[in-house]
Design a binder for these strands. Structure first.
Lengths: 177, 177
DNA sequence: ACCTGAACACCGTTCAAGT
DNA sequence: ACCTGAACACCGTTCAAGT
């Protein structure tokens, strides 16, 4: 049982059940050891949670970097890829954002990651003809619309068919429309 | 110490510190009694939380009803009032939505309340010339944009000056623009 | 009717003791 | 070096006993 095994198991629980779902007892049972083992590898629970933060931050940095260095130069296609990534990472992204609501450390990690992500979205919007200030504002509102989906599901179960109408709406008066 | 005193104190804690902030020990200390008293008035914690749900549902119903019966017939002005209400009730609204992420009961209460709210927003958008389907979709995306602000704060501290640019953007191709 | 106080289960935490 | 097992604090919960 290595430190990284605890982190891996905890990360999966975080994505599955949120920050509260990461319990030492449950993890110990799942890993087939007693919780005393946990306290050999970690000072306390918050050290484990800190490791999860680091892991997530690295993953997210890589993902956004991959987007920024992506092969397509077409801004609209880039925005679609950001959206696709968003759907892919939704479970852990949601867990992180909810956690950030009551943890300053998680809040800082999310804010830092969002700076990069918002920068990339805004760059795409500039590529479509928006001036920098307008691009930054719309990038923020677009991200809020996507993330807001965690807290406001479509009323008629299942995602509305025109969910990626978000792009159309936020690009209403750009080169695209 | 009456049942409603517990509910009132708990409701304040909910808005202040979220669902986890509602602790029997802390409430008992604040009310100057022992927690044994609590279990005279309530079967258990979940009965208290259910009472909070009811209280919030009534409050929210009244608020949205007041908006719907409001004096202004102007749809744009009505949308501005919805936004203003949103800012006013942000603390408890945020707490409710976060709570809804891990409680089916809270989830149902929020979804029910959102049905009314989304209906009212959509009605305003129809008043501005959108067809029903488009109005419903944009109402959903607008609400998500506002609520998404809980999870994605403005990167440069403090709300961006043009925060209610949301209206402009979502009304881009209506009678307003 | 309303509350106290002691007890219990659960979970995070500590630590002496084992291998 | 790595883990066990017993102990403790904290909080939700129960309940017999008080007024």
């Amino acid at each position: 049982m290595a430190r990284r095994d605890w982190i891996e198991a905890a990360y999966q629980e975080l994505a599955r059940a949120g920050e509260r779902g990461v319990g030492i007892n449950a993890l110990a049972a799942r890993l087939g050891v007693t919780k005393g083992s946990f306290y050999w590898h970690f000072k306390d629970r918050s050290e484990l949670m800190g490791a999860l933060l680091d892991r997530w931050a690295h993953e997210r940095t890589d993902e956004v970097l991959a987007l920024a260095l992506g092969s397509t130069p077409d801004p609209l296609e880039r925005l679609r890829r950001i959206q696709a990534l968003g759907r892919e990472v939704a479970p852990v992204d949601r867990a992180m954002r909810l956690w950030a609501q009551h943890s300053p450390d998680a809040e800082e990690a999310v804010r830092h990651a969002d700076r990069a992500l918002l920068g990339h979205i805004a760059a795409c919007l500039e590529g479509l003809g928006l001036v920098p200030d307008e691009a930054r504002l719309r990038a923020l509102l677009m991200l809020r619309t996507w993330v807001g989906g965690y807290l406001v599901p479509a009323p008629d179960g299942g995602e509305a068919p025109g969910a990626d109408r978000t792009l159309d709406i936020f690009l209403a008066d750009t080169a695209v429309s």
